[in-house]
């Protein structure tokens, strides 16, 4: 499943996509993110019949991703983000 967390407002689209078919819930992204955007759920609330853990975007972060992720993005020429870099299975992507 491609789980899109985030929002669209007048300034743009701010979505983090987690490919849950790739994600094995290892938790590396949780460690790598400096602002705790990710959490690991033992049971995927979007896929009740799945029985392995999965990364999701924290409820209190998904509606302010533009600001939360700014600390990693603001350097301008930065090409890679810690969450994307650390993920072994390339399950994470950003829309902006």
């Amino acid at each position: 499943m491609l789980a899109n967390y985030g929002y669209k407002d007048a300034t743009g689209d701010y979505f983090i996509t987690i490919d849950t078919d790739q994600c094995d819930g290892c938790g590396d992204c949780v460690e790598a993110c400096p602002v705790q955007v990710f959490v690991i759920e033992d049971e995927d609330p979007n896929d009740p019949l799945r029985d392995i853990p999965v990364a999701v975007v924290a409820d209190d972060k998904k509606n302010k991703l533009k600001y939360e992720c700014d600390s990693c993005k603001s350097s301008g020429d930065q090409v890679s983000l810690p969450c994307i870099e650390i993920c072994n299975v390339k399950a994470i992507s950003h829309s902006w």
């Binding site: 491609l2 929002y7 407002d9 896929d47 509606n63």
Partner: peptide
């Protein structure tokens, strides 16, 4: 009925 992709907007 299994979800393949989803997008939700509850900010506004």
């Amino acid at each position: 009925g299994k979800v393949i992709t989803f997008m939700m907007n509850d900010k506004c």
